[in-house]
């Protein structure tokens, strides 16, 4: 199957789902705005109540290891150097030198021009290379440039692409444009997995988060991701809850599996555990794997390692026992 066929497939599937022969902005708008509205107060209350669960002893042990294995270890700075990317890759390969049983994170996430360096450093370790593309983080570039950005990153060895949607188009109601862009980037990805960053901090309302989630899944996203990490607020529990509901309902509708990745602002083990509880309660246990749930984070790993050391040694650990990054 050629990549063009794949795009046709996505559009055809969308047409089937919406019950129309030709996908237009009007039909998309009708469908997205027909989604039930989000009860803001109820959603925030549910997220807050899920955050109060007490996770202890063996459950905590399991959760910490699971959370480590779900991390996309990220460096997305203008000042990134090949050396920094290599040291991040080294950390992914051996997260805690004092305990070889420590699980490895799922992926290393870098800018596209660093993908080759990350690929080389990670070799065949099984850790994925995720590259951000499509004029990350603003997404303000021409379609041609965005697609070239994507194909470049894939050619450099990225097997996961984190794209940003065009929030300007989304907010002004040009849903078809967003749809087409995601579908074309998906094509350009080839075999690489596509994560679609919705930048929920710029979408303003929970209703928009729900619409953007469905639009992204409709256009062929393998993962839906909250944020770039460059905008505040980044990932929050209520937003992630809405996205988890979306992937759960999407499976009901299409039998297809889509993953969720909250990114930005998750720094402590306590936070990570709250997310895992929410995943389990909203999407279900099947989503508690790195194939379906990821954390976009950098400092979170160190905190998880400190907690892991505490459980192993019985004494509180400190920053002297993890890497400085």
């Amino acid at each position: 199957m050629s990549t063009t066929d794949a795009a046709v497939d996505v559009t055809a599937r969308a047409g089937d789902l919406l019950g129309v022969s030709r996908l237009t902005n009007a039909t998309l708008t009708g469908w997205l705005h027909g989604l039930p509205g989000v009860d803001q107060v109820g959603c925030e209350a549910r997220a807050a109540s899920l955050g109060t669960r007490s996770i202890k002893t063996t459950a905590k042990q399991w959760a910490i290891d699971a959370a480590i294995s779900m991390i996309d270890l990220t460096t997305l700075e203008g000042a990134d150097t090949p050396g920094k990317v290599r040291s991040l890759a080294a950390k992914a390969l051996v997260p805690d030198p004092s305990d070889p049983a420590t699980p490895r994170p799922a992926a290393v996430c870098v800018y596209g021009d660093m993908a080759a360096i990350a690929r080389q450093a990670l070799g065949d370790s099984g850790i994925h290379v995720a590259a951000v593309a499509t004029a990350f983080p603003s997404g303000r570039a021409s379609r041609r440039v965005k697609l070239a950005d994507t194909t470049d990153a894939v050619a450099a060895g990225a097997d996961e692409i984190d794209m940003v949607i065009d929030r300007g188009a989304f907010l002004s109601g040009r849903y078809l444009e967003v749809f087409e862009e995601i579908a074309e980037v998906k094509q350009a990805c080839g075999d690489a997995h596509l994560k679609v960053i919705m930048e929920t901090g710029e979408l303003v309302t929970y209703d928009n988060v729900r619409r953007a989630s469905w639009l992204s899944m409709l256009a062929g996203a393998d993962f839906i991701k909250t944020s770039t990490g460059k905008i505040q607020p980044a990932a929050t529990l209520p937003v992630t809850l809405i996205m988890l509901e979306a992937v759960r309902d999407w499976r009901e509708l299409t039998a297809a599996i889509v993953g969720v990745k909250p990114a930005g602002g998750i720094r402590t083990s306590k936070d990570a555990l709250k997310y895992l509880v929410t995943v389990n309660e909203v999407a279900g246990e099947e989503w508690l794997t790195p194939e379906r749930f990821r954390f976009g984070a950098s400092s979170l790993l160190n905190d998880l390692l400190l907690q892991r050391q505490k459980l192993r040694t019985g004494a509180y650990s400190g920053a002297d026992y993890v890497t400085i990054d």
Binding site: T313, G314, A315, Y316, S317, G318, A319, D320
Partner: peptide
């Protein structure tokens, strides 16, 4: 004992 064992003290 927790303070005595704490690695960051």
């Amino acid at each position: 004992p927790w303070l005595a064992g704490h690695r960051d003290v």
